[in-house]
Design a binder for these strands. Structure first.
Lengths: 214, 214, 214, 214
DNA sequence: TATGAATGAGGCTTCATTCAT
DNA sequence: AATGAATGAAGCCTCATTCAT
């Protein structure tokens, strides 16, 4: 606002700042309006640069969208790495992982919405991104190690499947965000207050832990 | 050409058939491409009538979309009524309900996708539809009765909340459809074969039943 | 100019007139500016309809260009059919053919320019048009029959090749138009007055006839 | 990277090399895509320098194009000087000139294509170039001397006009290149094999010599 | 009720060029 | 002499919708 021109200058010759600024704006708008619904003009306008710059750095709408998607996934990985599941007994580690997953999705609704949008488009863009596969496979691998640890320690029963478990955990955590609007519309806001969310988190943890434990 | 004309004439006598035809086509296309992604031209072309008729009967894109949504919800209600949960002991009834919910979503992916799309648009259109609220509230009421029965019979513990339970059941069943594309893309198709789906269904049932049972 | 609205109405519901109007305008502009140089906006503006109509009937710039090209070729065929070479002794028929070719190109500079443009683009669009091949092969066939007649009558020597002859005739007639601008620029306008053109026509006829005659 | 820097430095010491490099690249691209079709970005990218240098040395697209055109013409002049027609009897000299013209155009398709492009743009840029006129007038002068020699020697008849003859020779030689793409597309590649080209060259020589000789 | 023709507004993208260093 | 970043103007095309019959 203050001295728009000066701010412009600041961007100039600072490609990464410009790119990040565009990416953040685009993330919000794609998450809000979907791929087709998003307008390149809107994105550009909410950016601190020009429409031309969006194309300069991201080529076209589709590339921009893919980059947004990749950046969102990269952020999850970063967060997951900080969890340090290896430092806890398997049971506790799993509880932490479920809690983290629940919270992460809750705190990053844009990320969840992007995946949802991607699914509506048959995950066509995911297909072309190596980065994204990598992120996710590493998450499964971590869970596999965790399960193995739990089984060997006698904490977990021996039939747990990492992918299925991941699916089960993710399903509720994702749904919690993706269908919040329709749920709230139909049944009121009770489940989405802080209290309600705590109850749901405990519900998920309890139902999953009982399934996993020996 | 002649055959074509005859078919055309058939429509002319039968407005409801025309409307249904348009509605079915629109359902498929909205489910496939989302609201913004769907093209009125595509819908009209895949219809057995003309574009003008689509507007004649449904006014504009938004109205058409809302009608599609309402029609989808109406179909669920019809299906649920056939379940007759009252005829079984509470535990068995709940297992049947979860199984039904899983299967129903699986068999009606377009319905699920429409709700997803609706959520991406903040359930704005749902808000305007009375039909839809009604359908859902009756589902919760049925579940409440079931839980009460289970508690009274000593089968279920006494702290189960119908809405939370509905949320938990629905979450996995919906996610199973909505995020199938991205899951498959990232982790392969194993979970989505008939076998894989059976395993997931059992997983949900088991995790939920252990949470509910006394 | 007079009652623009009324004229608009006249177009309405008269697709062929609209299409022809667009095609003529587009022919002139593509001939003048080349494919890349031509502006869809210019074409639309010089049309008696709107830009939207151009796309409605011709899909995109490329399709419009191809249609223009095909229409131009179709016109040549129509003209050639009126020549009735069969009605003259071979020698005279050939002289008429050369003269016609010279005059036709001279009178249809847009046609020639279109072919030139097409050549600059490596005749890529010609490749996709069946219509155009057909037109041209029939021209060669006619020349072949003419040569055969001339040989059998002893008028022509027996080694004439239709395709080579066609090439030789066409080369000068085409060049006369395509390189007129640069020639005139460099050597003045003398060759392109009516007199000059008559001299050139005679020169071509004489040089070719001497080559063909026995 | 290191090697790249070294190469860059080499240019820095050698402006003419940079200019030539740009000019050659630009020649090829203008010849391939026409004026409007050529992209400054493409030219710059295929260059061994940067886009900025293109503008630094050649101001803008139009100037670059004109310079390309002039450079192409300059090269023809150099070639023609090596012909030394004066050393042969007029008839033989003319045959050599036709052959040379045919071959030269065939060996310099880019040059021919540039002129073609120039003609499509009404030779507007040629108009502004003194260099180019000079080149061409000297060609006519040489032919004039040749004809005069032939007439005086009784080899040629006395009505030959240098400009018309130049036009006749050039027409086929130019057309051979400019319309090769469309010809090949429509009638196959036979005329453009080495054999085919020899036959065409002989055809031109024969048809022209018969016209010129006494 | 039905239809092919028509359309304004707005979408995405690309161009030649210039700026700050 | 050299460069990567930046840009306004203009290009092509598509959308939901309406009109005349």
């Amino acid at each position: 606002m203050v001295a728009d021109n000066i701010r412009r200058r600041k961007w100039q010759q600072n490609p990464d700042a410009v790119k990040n600024n565009i990416l953040e704006t685009a993330t919000a708008i794609f998450a809000k309006d979907g791929f087709s619904g998003a307008r390149m003009d809107d994105i550009a306008r909410q950016t601190e640069t020009s429409k031309r710059m969006v194309y300069y750095y991201f080529t076209d709408k589709k590339q921009l969208y893919i980059t947004v998607l990749e950046a969102a996934y990269a952020k999850v990985r970063a967060a997951e790495n900080e969890l340090n599941l290896e430092g806890y007994p398997a049971g506790e580690a799993l509880i932490r992982l479920i809690g983290f997953t629940f919270d992460y999705h809750r705190n990053h609704p844009d990320f969840v919405r992007l995946i949802q949008i991607e699914n509506i488009h048959q995950a066509r863009h995911l297909a072309t991104s190596d980065i994204i596969s990598a992120v996710n496979l590493s998450a499964i691998a971590a869970l596999e190690r965790l399960i193995k640890r739990g089984s060997e320690a006698g904490e977990f029963h021996s039939n747990n499947d990492a992918l299925e478990l991941h699916w089960l955990i993710t399903s509720s955590c994702v749904f919690n965000i993706t269908n919040r609007a329709s749920f709230q519309q139909l049944y009121g806001a009770n489940l989405f207050t802080d209290d309600g969310q705590d109850r749901l988190k405990k519900l998920i943890i309890s139902s999953i832990m009982q399934t996993v434990l020996a």
